[in-house]
Amino acid sequence: MAAASLAGCGGDEPRREQALKPLVMKEQTSSVAQGTGGYVVTWAGVISNPNRWHFGENVAATVVGKDASGKEVVRMEQPLDAVPPAGSLKFTGQATAAAAPVDVKVSFRPARWRQAGRIPSAFVPFPITAPITEKLGNGSYLVTGAVGNPYQKAATSLVITALLRDKDGKLIGGASTYVDDVRAGSPRRFVLTVDSLSSGGPVARTDIAARTWGSSARPYEELAMSGAMPPSTVKPKTPPFTRDRGYQAMPVDSRP
């Protein structure tokens, strides 16, 4: 009976694993620009995790570029950060090719699943404040802003990714940068440059997201375990207005 019980437990494990839905590549784009050492291939994408209780770990993107004859001129495997439960991963990358690719495809290998140690609402997103996107004279775009930490524990390293979109919401480019030692109440400024776009634009919207760095869910879980900072309860220190600036007297009803 004990052997039968163990066999039954072992048989349940594959079913639980199969019940998990695979990651989905929701969007991808790429651009090619002439560089000093060849052609610079830049890509950006969004991977979605439909599983509410599991992180997708050890994910890697494979980027393949081919020239007009179908010959492979660039191939790169890019390790990606853990994809949070019921969330998405915005990522970007860059490589150099000797010849100009006319077709660039981004795929990824299946994730290894790890059950989250906290409920999904415990993984509070990192707030982005004061975002500015500015077009530079050379056609590139400068993206600046600040990232905060909503957790009690300091975030040792965060990845900031900016995705640029046209007026129709289509993804046309992106770039990433890193910030270190982000503490609660002390936002850190970030600056990044998007050098080329997959279309001429213009850029109508920029989506900016921050995430923990690393293929494992551990950094994000450690922050969640420390707990989120409570909402501010500090009373205003300035005196109230003598009269509400938004006040407007209603007209007197003179009907009989």
Rank of each mutant, 00 (worst) to 15 (best):
K135Y: 01
R165W: 02
G145R: 02
A130R: 12
K170E: 06
A155T: 04
D168V: 01
V143I: 13
I172F: 07
G148F: 06
D168K: 15
A162D: 13
P127I: 00
I128M: 03
D166F: 03
P125S: 09
L163M: 09
F126P: 12
V147D: 12
L171G: 07
L142T: 03
A155Y: 03
D168S: 13
L136N: 15
T129M: 06
K135V: 02
T133Q: 11
T144H: 05
L142K: 12
R165D: 07
V124E: 14
I132A: 09
K135S: 07
G148P: 01
Y151W: 14
V124T: 15
K153N: 00
K153D: 01
Y151L: 13
P131F: 06
L136S: 10
L171A: 06
T161D: 13
P127G: 07
L163K: 02
D166V: 02
K170S: 10
R165E: 08
V143Y: 10
A155C: 04
I172H: 10
I132R: 14
A154H: 00
T161V: 15
G145C: 09
K135D: 00
V159Y: 11
L158P: 11
V159D: 13
I160E: 09
T133G: 10
N138E: 08
D166Q: 08
K135W: 01
T161S: 05
G169V: 00
T129S: 15
A155Q: 05
Y141P: 02
T129H: 07
L142F: 05
K153M: 03
T129G: 10
G139Q: 10
I132P: 01
T129I: 11
R165M: 04
Q152M: 03
L171Q: 02
T133N: 03
G139V: 14
K170Q: 07
I172A: 04
A154T: 01
N149C: 13
P131I: 04
T156M: 01
A154C: 00
D166H: 04
T156C: 00
A162F: 14
K135L: 05
A130S: 06
F126H: 11
F123N: 09
L158F: 05
D168R: 15
V147K: 08
